[in-house]
Design a protein around this nucleic acid. Structure first.
Lengths: 205, 205
DNA sequence: TGATTTAGAATACGATTGTATACTAGTATA
DNA sequence: TATACTAGTATACAATCGTATTCTAAATCA
């Protein structure tokens, strides 16, 4: 349950702010008695009631009977960690642990709308004219459908490839952005699947 | 004091990994006894000795007498926040608060060697053949010197521009990567300054 | 061989800590 | 007026937890 469902009293707000500050500064939850002492109260229950109220209203999460067991309901986001996909193993879900090669941190602006993202390291120069170079990390939004002209990541016979998606009434082609290469025409009997479309490129130089 | 000064024993390494994992997953330090139970030991001292050893060797930090008082000596880096430079105001230090337009989070792999980084939003298409497009964020390492052929960010008469740096015995030129534009020849009386070189490009699509 | 280091056990002490119950007082509300 | 809610106090209990001391056993090393 997300915060801001229910209003806090002034004291509850102060307590929440103290807990937030404590977590931020010491990377550790305060104890009930630390809250009590900070507000110069004389009973652990004074603090405890506010903490329980904050938990009930969804602002705090707690683990019972555990010392320093408080957490903020909404963790502060500094960057979005998305998995880097390596070789895709057949039969496994795309984002299974086994397919992961590492983690890439991207700006939160990339993740608007809670998009289902992953990254892929580009091999080969087939997309240089779309400014996607070998070694670049393409940031991919997972989807099974794409509009013609969009740059997609497709799985052909178990191999992941980045190409421009083209579609006519009769056939689907995957078009490179490099005159050196020919378009790939998808035939009926091929194992073909769109796994996402490119929403960003990260290019270390 | 940085870790890796002193070698760990195998057990100490396992304990450190467990503490790291615990911190990462629950945002909370394990207790001495939780470490003990995880390794199926029968005495708190078994765990405590390893924890004290890890502290002495600089891998862990601890606060005495405090429940769940362990921290990693090197905080886990999830992303590097670098400032996005806007219009550069004359007279101010480059990275002054007034010049900042926002923050960009990049992968830690960009920040190897503790480089002094900032980001810049590209305006114009003068570098498209170097795969730097309008709207891209170039990630820049601050430096006053560059080798010919490197892509630099230069300040000409207070205006920041991204170009390829060229230098002969007689003159300095800034070369666009787009035939539509002519190279800029720097004259003696111009206020010219290199402020950094491009080490990465972040391109939202 | 004897000394040192490392790993772990056994046990205990006391402070810390989450929790429970019972109480007073003020304030808002139906 | 009676009721409910909020705020805080007082006190107690038991589990958790960091720490201290003493001990055994194996491995390393000079």
């Amino acid at each position: 349950m997300a915060p801001s469902d229910e209003a806090m009293t002034d004291t509850q707000r102060s307590v929440l702010e103290y807990v937030q500050k404590h977590l931020q500064e010491s990377h550790r939850s305060p104890t009930v008695r630390e809250v009590m002492r900070h507000f110069k109260w004389n009973s652990p229950q004074s603090a405890r009631k506010h903490l329980l109220a904050l938990e009930e209203k969804g602002y705090l999460e707690r683990d019972e009977h555990i010392a320093r067991g408080m957490r903020l309901a909404e963790p502060t986001v500094t960057g979005i960690s998305i998995p880097i996909l390596g070789k895709v193993a057949a039969g496994l879900p795309l984002l299974a642990e086994e397919n992961r090669e590492g983690t890439l941190v991207v700006d939160p602006s990339m993740a608007r709308g809670g998009r289902n993202l992953f990254a892929l390291t580009v091999r080969g120069d087939s997309m240089v004219n779309a400014h996607i170079l070998p070694g670049d990390r393409v940031i991919v939004q997972q989807t099974t459908h794409a509009a013609p002209g969009e740059i997609v990541v497709a799985l052909i016979e178990g191999e992941a490839t980045v190409k421009t998606f083209r579609k006519t009434s009769s056939k689907i082609t995957l078009e490179p952005a490099n005159p050196k290469y020919d378009p790939i025409v998808i035939t009926q009997d091929q194992d073909f699947r769109i796994i996402g479309k490119v929403v960003g490129v990260f290019s270390p130089r």
